[in-house]
Design a protein around this nucleic acid. Sequence first.
DNA 1: GAATTTAGTTGACTCAGTCCACTAAATCGG
DNA 2: CCGATTTAGTGGACTGAGTCAACTAAATTC
Lengths: 308, 308
Amino acid sequence: MDAIEIAAVAAIRRFNRFHTRWVGALGGNLHGSGFALTEARVLYELAQRDDWQAAEMAKALGLDPAYLSRILQRFAERGWLERSRSPADGRAWRLKLTEAGRAAFRPLDEASSGQAQAILSRLAPPQQGRLLDALTDAERLLSDEGMVRPVPIIREHRAGDMGWVISAHGRLYSEEYGWDLTFEALVAEIAAKFLREFKPGRERCFIAELDGAPAGSAFVVQDDEATAKLRLVLVEKRAQGYGLGKRLVQEAVGFARAAGYARMVLWTNDILHAARAIYIAEGFKLVAEERHHSFGQDLVGQNWELVF
Amino acid sequence: MDAIEIAAVAAIRRFNRFHTRWVGALGGNLHGSGFALTEARVLYELAQRDDWQAAEMAKALGLDPAYLSRILQRFAERGWLERSRSPADGRAWRLKLTEAGRAAFRPLDEASSGQAQAILSRLAPPQQGRLLDALTDAERLLSDEGMVRPVPIIREHRAGDMGWVISAHGRLYSEEYGWDLTFEALVAEIAAKFLREFKPGRERCFIAELDGAPAGSAFVVQDDEATAKLRLVLVEKRAQGYGLGKRLVQEAVGFARAAGYARMVLWTNDILHAARAIYIAEGFKLVAEERHHSFGQDLVGQNWELVF
DNA sequence: GAATTTAGTTGACTCAGTCCACTAAATCGG
DNA sequence: CCGATTTAGTGGACTGAGTCAACTAAATTC
């Protein structure tokens, strides 16, 4: 088990303890409404849908069917619940709250809302937003949906993207290879030039997005009439393992070919092994290498070419 | 109640329902260990510290003292617990798990860890990291600590910051004022030039950080020997209300003054009302205005000056 | 069309959790 | 320093949440 996993296990357990205590503090006699927690949950679910069926609900809430049956009976006796035989299944009931049932639910609902609002009222709006995000994320990741890998999308650039490209390059190359800030400056110049002299049919920026945030980039720019240049190919660490590098390069090559270029070139450095493999797979050939000192490092630059 | 608050209230309630069901699914007979949830919680707490006192623990876990007393008795009968009179208080016991108690706790502890690991094992490492963050955030925000406003810090730039500055400008001005991408290009050029021609004692970039992420910027650059220029002053929406704009400008002015400049100038647009107030407060005077068409908009540029 | 499964119910039970009253030590207030 | 009040812990008595097994009746399977 690595460090993050240990930390995450601890976080899950700590959070469970925290939340158990927290819910417990809200009280068995929920919000002073005279409802037990389970009764309240059942009533809540009944209020959400008009065609519940007992077995289904028992499964959804993880309740004993016998126990649920008695709760529903109690509700029915109080006139809160209308039980009609299900037309599709003669054994099952269709459960529907009556108007009286809704009236009984309302104070509970409001107390619960009030409870949540009380917590929120202590928070400034941006923190409220973060709480919203945190809870949504936590729920998604703890439940089975967390398993679903987010689907990355590739799109063209829009406002804020160039800055992100620059920042991502600056961070990644500084952390991984110790390149200094002149590299970020170079990327900023390339990006600025791209925006300034953008040739719609001949140039394109591909931004990969994962979980709604930029996670990768690739640029096609015009080198000369017959030559396209591939630049600024990058995939953030958090987005690795999705084959995004390959997809971005394929998109870029595909665009360049469709735009009528006779060949595509790119400049990179020999230390970028993962990228190298992608270029080879797409048919690029190494045409030249030269040593240079840039960004505070001794590097070996490489020129690659792909003839269509 | 505004939109975010409504969404957050819903998220809290939904999460509570989710987590209740989720914990319920782990079972009253916790992890098949023969422990009830509360017993397990008590045992867990006992395992964490060697000097618990019953009343204190009852308060911490929100338990009825009588109930807790009986649980502790049961543990003591099984030889899990050593109860000695507290030296400081003749009424109280000092509670300490025996070796047998620890042995009884171990399988429970492992089951709980295993439970958490089972959840994590379905997630890819980056998602595990996000879960960790989400749970930590959620706990902090739901508990009282959430009330503590994060303290913004102001620091100099480092790798990735210029890109962030560009991105933040691009996003903000596009969203708020509809400026096109040529503005982001301009910012990128300014930022690139700053990095390229950085004059340490004479120029500085101030980055405001909130909650560990960049949230604002201000730059001092050399215009000529006697003139400093204030550029790229921005505070993200999420960081508004902390007085960061004012602090950034003050830092910048203070630096320029200390660096020996005779005056400071800045260029801005008349639509930026909030910024205007800050400049006035710091002593800047409007010296010129001119209409111009830039970034796809008709604008009125303003030159401000502060003579030291 | 018999065998099996599923929806819902009932009876019997257990034990988690609550409430009250009490003892004994500690603390407070004058 | 002493009576009044508070606090730590406990036992008795109770409630009711939740469980388990057995059953009926409808639906599904083979």
